[in-house]
Design a protein around this nucleic acid. Structure first.
Lengths: 245, 245
DNA sequence: TAGTGGTCTAGACCACGCA
DNA sequence: GCGTGGTCTAGACCACTAT
């Protein structure tokens, strides 16, 4: 069992437990520690680093919650087996495409600052008939149309412009205004494309669409955005990590 | 701000922070506390209940992590806005159907205890060509066929029987053997049904299927099960809660 | 200035798994 | 019996927000 070289900076504004957790995370994910390896125990580590046991414990807990480590009473702490440790993230398709190295592009098909849509209003916590900002965008991956994105926002967002939405993603625009979606509820399904969707997405045959409706909320639980999206099924799937921890 | 009536049983084996967290959770979800309401502060609560502040804090943290409460430094703790608080769970379709009040039924189409499937073997952390247990089941909701479930398990599970699988769900059978899936990685997409799938699922027209492949792991991160499922899209969708916390 | 949550410490005792 | 993680205490100081 290796004693990892850890550097703690007590003058940093970063909490000690987080400094420690970051360095431990690095050691696990860069392979310094292999799956199954025993982990230095809490008492030894707190002694070695001159940290209190609760502080060390909190750092280790962070890794346990992420599934990187397994704690067993009476046994010790060990590095968890393989398992891709990427968590489901709250990102946009835009980010996903960039990550895959494809060059996404967005075309705003319509931008209407006073629409009515009862399903969207309800999702946004507003009364039926409330006026909403409605956006319809077409997402390309390279030259190929990939998805039709329909989004509704609260009326306060009525100063959005086509340019903003086409250069940055919707989520980037929201973040720039201090709005940070934190939790989202998504429903994923499938259906056949309508004639118009087939035309817009250049779908020749009777290919299916993957559908996703999403209600996004900030840390308070206040609704931020409601979306109803559809993707060409041959081009898109959704990855999710489900956890009982 | 109400002082909630909390009962702490110090003779119980249940940790104090968990007893407290459960009662606080109940107060929030049954509407005793409304969204936006101020929450009793940590010091007052620890004093009132004769618990240490870290213990109270840990209980509150549990609710914050679930998204029920919002803590703001200098402000206080408040109840989060609406937002359905159900978390994405690692359950089977079987459980989902029972919850919806439909009566699910399972028919085992085949059970083969020494199959080869390289994709499944890789997902289970075994060498290509390794012998696996393969199960194909047909899931009904009431009288209607809903899904074809294909699962692969490690060779150690070669004593499964058709009866077991048809009376309990697969996950119940695993749990009964002390195997507890904790984390799963799912990929959800859509495609058209093959002729055979159309026949088995009684699909008349060119309806699409929702597809889901799932790799499930236990708390150690050891692979437990690999599944490749398809559902009638008109009958099924997947709910997911994505969180950045 | 007063009150809140955020962090941290130095102990303590218990429950569990193993030799 | 011994070492591990699991829980709990009684303080302390700090950073932030409101008034």
């Amino acid at each position: 069992m290796a004693a990892l070289p850890i550097q703690i900076d007590r003058t940093s504004p970063v909490p000690l437990y987080h400094q420690l957790a970051e360095q431990l995370t690095a050691a696990v994910s860069n392979g310094t520690l292999r799956p199954g390896d025993a982990f230095e125990n809490e008492l030894a580590m707190s002694d070695r680093l001159s940290l209190s046991r609760p502080t060390v414990r909190r750092a280790i807990s962070e890794l346990v919650n992420k599934g990187l480590l397994v704690r067993r009473r009476g046994i010790g702490t060990t590095v968890a087996n393989q398992m891709v440790h990427r968590r489901a993230e709250l990102t946009s398709l835009y980010d996903d495409l960039i990550r895959e190295g494809r060059t996404p592009r967005t075309e705003v098909l319509s931008l209407n600052c006073s629409t009515q849509d009862d399903r969207a209003a309800e999702a946004l916590g507003l009364k039926p008939g409330a006026l909403l900002v409605a956006i319809v965008r077409l997402r390309y991956a390279g030259d190929q149309p990939l998805a039709i994105l329909r989004n509704w926002l609260p009326p306060a967002m009525d100063d959005l412009t086509t340019e903003l939405l086409e250069t940055d993603g919707l989520y980037a625009v929201l973040r720039a205004r201090g709005i940070r979606p934190t939790v989202a509820r998504q429903r994923i399904g499938a259906r056949n494309a309508t004639a118009e969707e087939r035309r817009i997405l250049h779908m020749s045959k009777a290919e299916p669409l993957v559908t996703m409706t999403r209600s996004a909320y900030d840390a308070d639980g206040s609704p931020v955005e409601f979306g109803d999206h559809c993707y060409r099924a041959d081009q898109y799937s959704v990855d999710v990590i489900v956890s009982e921890r």
